[in-house]
């Protein structure tokens, strides 16, 4: 069986690279931690890989705004490579700081069509609470999304760990378009109030940051590029769930006896690449 090659970026303060590489390995990927500068110097080539992951962390200390410097470095040094990557149908994921980076490079939410224009259309800004927090949230995935990463996903619990995770767009029109395109791939929900209007911002802490329309993550129009603030890799195993000792966590059907709810996202991308090859 072909093992899709996954480039997991690291360096400059990215810090979820080890676990992000590990989860791809668990679902049949062959993950390599690649220093961003290796792509820039040409020592390694993005085109050698099938999947690109931009993990969480504090790239460049989030100086000048979260993901800004890393986003710039990618936008100016890897423009062609990134553009070709997407046009060749290869998936990209950005988690937490990686999502902030993808938004600031302009890959998310991206333009109409499949050719990235590297124009920033949204931002992730300071949480409404004004502070960084680590807490668990419940996510609901959009069943009408074309995102290859979220296929078959319904809801999962996982942690958020950020200070700047409030998704904003400049006007209602752009937000509505995002929604109409089904690019809102995943939202925060209140599991105790399942009938709540999905577009109405949930109170803290159900929405940990006050994101517009409870947006936790979005995809581009191709469905290949996906970014989210919460950390699905942090629930790769059931024992990482805070309710594990209570015996009340949702069951996951899997060959991996201990599989947690988050692993399927990474399996989706690996299987997508395999299905194409």
């Amino acid at each position: 069986m072909y093992m899709p090659k996954v480039a997991v970026l690291f360096g400059f303060g990215i810090n979820c690279d080890h676990e992000t590489a590990a989860v791809f390995e668990m679902v049949g990927g062959k993950a390599t931690r690649v220093h961003l500068n290796s792509f820039i110097s040409g020592d390694d080539k993005l085109s050698n890989y099938d999947i690109l992951a931009v993990p969480g962390g504090f790239s460049f200390g989030d100086h000048l705004g979260s993901g800004r410097l890393m986003g710039n470095r990618m936008r100016f040094s890897l423009r062609e490579e990134l553009s070709n990557f997407i046009q060749n149908g290869k998936p990209i994921i950005g988690i937490c700081n990686g999502f902030q980076v993808l938004v600031k490079t302009g890959l998310l939410p991206g333009p109409d069509g499949n050719e990235p224009d590297f124009i920033q259309r949204a931002s992730l800004t300071l949480n409404d609470t004004g502070r960084y927090e680590d807490r668990w949230v419940t996510l609901e995935f959009n069943q009408h999304s074309n995102c290859i990463w979220t296929r078959g996903m319904t809801t999962i619990d996982c942690p958020v760990r950020h200070g700047e995770g409030k998704y904003v767009m400049p006007n209602k029109e752009s937000l509505r378009q995002l929604s109409d395109n089904n690019q809102i791939a995943v939202r925060y929900i209140d599991p105790d109030n399942i009938d709540a209007n999905r577009d109405e911002v949930l109170p803290f802490p159900k929405s940990p940051n006050g994101s517009m329309m409870n947006i936790a993550g979005i995809s581009d129009q191709t469905g290949l590029v996906f970014g989210l603030m919460p950390h699905p890799e942090a629930i790769y195993a059931q024992w990482l769930h805070p309710d594990y000792t209570r015996g009340t966590i949702p069951n996951v059907e899997s060959e991996i006896e201990w599989e947690g709810q988050g692993l399927q996202i990474f399996r989706n991308a690996v299987e997508y690449v395999i299905s194409k090859n």
Binding site: N15, G56, E233
Partner: peptide, 10 residues
């Protein structure tokens, strides 16, 4: 809560 207590997913 303001400390990240679960980076590294462990």
């Amino acid at each position: 809560r303001q400390y990240d207590h679960e980076v590294i997913a462990q």
